[in-house]
Computed example of a mutant assay.
Amino acid sequence: MKTRTLGNTGFNISEVGLGCWQLGGDFGPITQSTVDGIFSAALEAGINFFDTADVYGDGASERYVGEYLCNTIPEPIIATKYGRAAGTYPDGYSLSDLRDSLKRAQDRLQRDQIDLIQLHCIPTEVMARGEIFDWLRSMQQEKHVKFFGASVETVEEGLICAQHDDLSSLQVIFNIFRQKLLDELLPMALEKNIGIIARLPLASGLLSGKFHAHTEFDKTDHRHFNQDGQMFNVGETFAGIPFAKGVELAEAIKNKTPEGYSTAQMAMRWILDQPAVSTIIPGASRAQQVTENAKVSDLEPLPKALHDDLRRFYSESVAAHIRGAY
């Protein structure tokens, strides 16, 4: 597993991290033995970056992360989030609310200090006012967190956050189906030494090439209940593309996959080929997925001709189908 430096933090993190949303049960029920297998496979593969949030399973994901990784040597880098919990979102933000949230997260994660706290898709107007970044700085001074960043939904939000010179990271929806970030946001992040954490690298699994038009998901899975943005930003599910159209587009991507790569590996390698990206954080519902995802770090960069082809494909065939804030 290769590593990259995460923005201005000095952390050397694995190119492939582990997204832990699924550990909260938001992709369907999950058992302790499955969780143990996922973490074991991640550590075996050299993954040292784990991304979670307080609202994933109402704290369940953070608890799993804390329980499994609390005695890991060397110590992994753990990132969590603040801003979407009941009573906080959309207008309950305050310094005391942030502090209380962080203390609860520290307890669940079994950490005296959180490596990276990220604003969790908070309203654009709250970001723009700017006081919440002062509260984050206060949490640094009080030693609750080492560094802070933001998880955002849109390019506009990313650019707002990037105006703060001490911002360490931006977590963004970025994949072959979501290429708008290449125009302005990623170049700015690279220039300002802001680490890019790419979430949904497989567009909720679409870019694995394994779904078909009649694929069904568990009723507790956001891919069932949020396909059209019924519960939260539609971009968090299938990159904002209607499922049937996404399956069709994924089939076209599958036909572009070079020899020696699975379609999922090609899609993730495409992201890692972007110089602004620090890590990708695919989720995994079983240990074997973790192992296969981790192999992407050792694959050769994709040919320029394929990058050019995928850029054209996005512009001509994908962009018009993306829904939601972007």
Rank of each mutant, 00 (worst) to 15 (best):
M1N: 14
Q22P: 02
Q22E: 15
Q22F: 04
F27D: 12
T31K: 14
T34M: 11
G37K: 13
N48H: 10
G59I: 13
V65T: 00
L69G: 09
P74K: 04
T88Y: 05
T88Q: 09
S94C: 08
D97E: 13
R99Q: 15
R104A: 13
I117Q: 07
Q118H: 08
L119I: 12
C121H: 08
M127T: 04
G130T: 06
D134Q: 13
W135K: 02
R137L: 06
Q140M: 11
E142R: 01
H144C: 08
V152L: 04
V152T: 07
E153S: 12
C161T: 04
S168P: 02
I176F: 05
F177N: 02
Q179C: 03
E184C: 11
L186T: 07
E191C: 06
A203Y: 01
G205D: 09
L206H: 06
L207M: 09
G209K: 05
D218R: 01
H224I: 03
I241Y: 10
I241D: 01
E248A: 09
A250V: 03
K256L: 15
Q265L: 08
T279K: 02
P282Y: 08
R286F: 09
R286W: 08
V296D: 06
D298E: 15
L306P: 00
R311A: 15
A319P: 00
A320S: 14
